[in-house]
Design a protein around this nucleic acid. Structure first.
Lengths: 223, 223
DNA sequence: GCAATCGTGTAATGGTTATTACACCTTCGC
DNA sequence: GCGAAGGTGTAATAACCATTACACGATTGC
């Protein structure tokens, strides 16, 4: 936790409201959560909540983009070190899965999805700040490999999308059904990934020069 | 449309309620749709609605499983003719996409997903009646190819899941964000599919005997 | 310590909506 | 045509909840 010296009580209240709201939205969904219950959990008062966020929608926006800010950082990790595709992809896959399969992130996704019926702009903003950035970075990465001589079986764009689907699309079955059936084991992910690597033409060093990519992994838990 | 001679007015009312409710749920979502607006569109009265469905949840269940019944049929199309994997898979893919990317089906999925927060059993029932059946059929199909001599790069189970993701996971970005950004062009799907086929080891006739599968396509629009 | 600012607790407001009650109309067997 | 069962339309009930209003207590600069 990063602790910033807060200028006044109001900022602490703000944090408490956002944390409580996130927890309750996660448990009950947006529409079912009452502002009363949020105040009850966070402390403070309804008047303060309205002063800070304007209304319930404003609070949701604050909650969502508070979390999205964290996800933004993730896309910046795809940089710097040079590794071969078959080395790099599993590391990136593990990193992305850790982020994207996070229960809190899933719950927020679900809420944004629901609200998108009424407010498409809101949903687009959310996905621009999370998924789209990551995707762009991946496209760039595949493009680089291509320049380095890899003979890709499809465009970097198609490959980036498919790669994302291969590593996270089973998250959607969870997001959708709250199912606990499908096991997200590392072995299963890896099997899917190997199929992708082979299918993409990235399974062996090819062409004039060994394809490589600039990758850095800052998290200590992998590799 | 199948027209069955209805025994009394009540059954016509039932149909009208379900159709109106489906349309409104699709437009506005479940929680935002009022029973009043459903009666307004369908005709009839609130009293009849309650007699038929008990309450609002009962109506939703009727709407969802009325539609799910159609999807059930789809899984039965994977049968009978023998084709090679690289011939069969594109046909199956097109068939499944047509079903799964249907806007109505997407909207229902979105609603079920939202309600799964409160009622997991409901969501599970929905997915059992739709996705799970299809998946089982696919597993069986890959298993058959394996018996026929195909050297699969992963288990039939892993392949079935991945195949489904390859052909429909981009539907989720739509389902989630109501986005119109991603184009579901046949070319794009095909590119993804080719990667899958190559990665799965299904791109050339291998082994003792040409792998084949029993496939029938009843829809006239493809192939 | 004091007063002005800031935050709190409580309670009213107003609107929405699921659900129920009830008195009227329609249909259909006879 | 008649009457009973089946539908219909309207309006009442009751609860819930976002939002606002207001008077009281806490904090902080001085």
């Amino acid at each position: 936790m990063i602790t910033i010296t807060l200028c006044c009580r109001l900022d602490q209240r703000r944090r408490a409201f956002i944390d409580a709201a996130r927890a309750l939205f996660l448990e009950q969904g947006y529409e079912r959560t009452t502002l009363g219950s949020i105040v009850e959990r966070a402390g403070g008062s309804l008047a303060t909540l309205y002063k800070l966020f304007g209304n319930k929608d404003g609070l949701l926006e604050a909650v969502v983009f508070d979390r999205a800010a964290e996800s933004e950082k993730l896309s910046r990790r795809l940089a710097t070190t040079r590794r071969s595709p078959s080395e790099a992809l599993p590391i990136i896959a593990a990193d992305l899965r850790e982020q994207l399969l996070d229960p809190e992130f899933l719950a927020l996704t679900r809420i944004v999805m629901t609200r998108s019926i009424e407010d498409q702009a809101f949903a687009r903003k959310f996905f621009d700040r999370t998924a789209t950035g990551t995707r762009d970075d991946l496209v760039e990465m595949f493009t680089q490999w291509q320049k380095d001589g890899a003979e890709l079986t499809a465009s970097p764009c198609v490959l980036a999308d498919l790669f994302l689907d291969v590593i996270v699309s089973d998250m959607h079955s969870d997001a959708i059904s709250h199912s606990t059936k499908i096991v997200h084991s590392p072995e299963r992910t890896n099997a899917r990934l190997q199929i992708f690597i082979k299918g993409a033409g990235l399974d062996e060093p090819v062409g004039k020069q060994a394809p490589a990519c600039r990758i850095t992994k800052t998290s200590p838990d992998i590799g």
